[in-house]
Simulated assay, not measured.
Amino acid sequence: MDIRELAVPGAWVVTPRQFRDERGAFVESFKASEFEKATGRPFELCQVNCSVSAAGVLRGIHYTEDPPGQAKYVTCVRGAFLDVVVDLRPGSPTYGRWDSVLLDDVDRRSVFLSEGLGHAILSLEDQSTVTYLCSLEYTPEFDRDVDAFDATLAIDWPTVGRDGAPLTYVRSPKDTVAPPFTAVT
């Protein structure tokens, strides 16, 4: 398992080793001891979520008010997503910086993001499926959003899917009216 920090401190990409034979593949996608050694922190699991998305579905940028904050460990189990992490921690030297990782069912990478970081995923093909391991149960009163197309953040969203076909972005009504980055406090 290879774990490296992204350009946004507090976010890591985890690339597991895959063991393949005539039966298929085995992947150890999370191991607490290796995770703690690489990140310097434990990960307490409180909730697991799974979402399935059509090509072009853009979920986020979502975050949880900090404190209490919510850490997430995100893994694509089918298809492909562009996973984007945004530093939304006021006072952070990397406030407003974002980084992205391709999560797919080929390399089987995961992304861990610490409390206070924003998160978005863009599905790059139909039926893409992602699981989120969360450190805090969903609490609507702490739920926050930022517009994924905010010009200040200037996230470089792909315009074509994994198959090379053009993507039409699909967002929830809530994400469509998300406030700009300048509203984060």
Rank of each mutant, 00 (worst) to 15 (best):
L6E: 00
P9F: 07
W12K: 12
V14S: 09
F19T: 13
F19Y: 15
F19C: 12
F26G: 09
E28G: 03
F30D: 04
F30T: 01
F30H: 05
K31V: 12
S33T: 08
E34W: 12
K37D: 09
K37Y: 03
G40L: 03
R41S: 10
F43P: 02
F43N: 04
E44R: 11
E44A: 10
E44T: 12
E44G: 10
L45N: 05
C46G: 14
Q47C: 00
V48H: 02
V48Y: 06
S53K: 04
A54T: 12
G56L: 03
G56M: 01
G56V: 00
G56Y: 04
V57M: 02
L58G: 13
L58I: 12
P67G: 13
P68V: 10
G69V: 10
G69T: 12
Q70W: 06
A71F: 01
K72G: 01
V74S: 11
C76M: 08
C76I: 09
F81T: 07
V85H: 14
V85S: 15
V85T: 15
V86T: 05
V86C: 06
D87N: 09
D87S: 08
D87T: 06
T94P: 03
T94I: 00
Y95A: 04
D99W: 00
V101A: 00
D104E: 05
D105H: 08
